[in-house]
Design a binder for these strands. Structure first.
Length: 297
DNA sequence: GTCCAGGGAATCA
DNA sequence: TGATTCCATGGA
């Protein structure tokens, strides 16, 4: 089933000293990623495109250990993945000044960072997320990876990378249905084959500067609507100005600002405009703090 | 049995 | 454009 097995990858370590805005629980449980889980020692372990990472927090140090494919350097991988060159203290200060609601949600999720995840993986993952719940989304993605991804053995445990589009090129709609994707099977299949046949699409999305043009291109993919497109842009393309609106965000925005009796009747446009006006270029960050706070608190 | 989940697409006005 | 309905599946 898995042609490639990595079992002798060299373990690497990267230590981040004196970082303030980095709280593993906040980062991995604010809904942006689906492949990070607690191990038996209460540390988070995740499979990313380039390998397997374990994140430990000890006092004000973050210790990241892991195995990386293709002999890449863990420091380079982490700098990009964890957005380490961005100043979250500065971002939080700016957002906290906007109003007390946001200030409170930031105080709650003070350690959130927006990850830069693999574009292909994020597209497929958020197509799967449609009308679905997080535990089930995670289960589906694990099964996809176990069946079609590459195996990495580290400390006598097996991990599986998210399958590349090439690794999914021969997977049928029926096989996807058997993995529990439900009605999303055909959307995943169709988008996979569009991206296989037009290999420039992913490159162009990474290169394109204009956010509206990125959105337009994403919206052409089956299973990608406004909310999924915004999540892809925020979690894989660092477009911090987009504001994904789901049921939780609608709920929190209505509770805090709009105060309509029936929240399901709140217009998406109204929320969009409100977010753009209040949060401006940092709307996506604001969204994550509010989302995490509303779901957890 | 019923409701809900990080929505999208098809249909109809 | 805007509102409604259907879509698989599993847990609460």
């Amino acid at each position: 089933m898995n042609k490639n097995v990595y079992e002798d990858l060299k373990e690497q370590t990267y230590i981040i000293e004196n970082i303030k805005s980095f709280e593993p629980k906040h980062i991995f449980e604010c809904g942006q990623c689906f492949r990070w889980n607690l191990d038996e020692n209460e540390n988070y372990i995740g499979v990313i495109k380039d390998g397997v990472l374990k994140v430990e927090k000890k006092e004000n140090k973050i210790i990241i250990t892991g195995v990386i494919i293709d002999n890449k350097d863990i420091k380079d991988i982490c700098k990009e993945y964890f957005d380490l060159d961005n100043n979250y203290e500065d971002i939080k200060m700016k957002l906290s000044k906007i109003d007390d609601n946001l200030k409170n949600s930031i105080a709650y999720g003070y350690g959130i960072r927006i990850l830069k995840q693999d574009l292909w993986e994020t597209i497929i993952s958020f197509i799967i997320s449609a009308n679905n719940n997080i535990p089930r989304i995670k289960g589906i993605i694990e099964r996809l990876s176990k069946n079609y991804g590459k195996e990495i053995i580290w400390n006598n445990k097996s991990y599986y990378t998210f399958p590349t589009k090439e690794e999914m090129s021969n997977v049928s709609v029926d096989e996807l249905r058997k993995l529990g994707l439900g009605f999303r099977d055909k959307r995943v299949y169709d988008t996979t084959h569009i991206l296989l046949e037009n290999s420039k699409i992913l490159e162009n999305l990474e290169k394109e500067e204009n956010t509206e043009k990125v959105r337009e291109q994403l919206l052409e993919l089956p299973g990608v609507g406004p909310k999924v497109a915004d999540c892809i842009m925020l979690f894989a393309l660092k477009r911090f100005e987009v504001f994904p609106i789901d049921v939780w965000v609608r709920r929190v925005m209505n509770d805090l600002y709009i105060k309509e009796e029936d929240e399901t009747k709140v217009n998406k446009r109204q929320i969009e405009n409100l977010a753009k006006e209040k949060y401006k270029k940092l709307a996506g960050l604001a969204q994550q703090y509010l989302f995490y706070w509303r779901r957890e608190a």
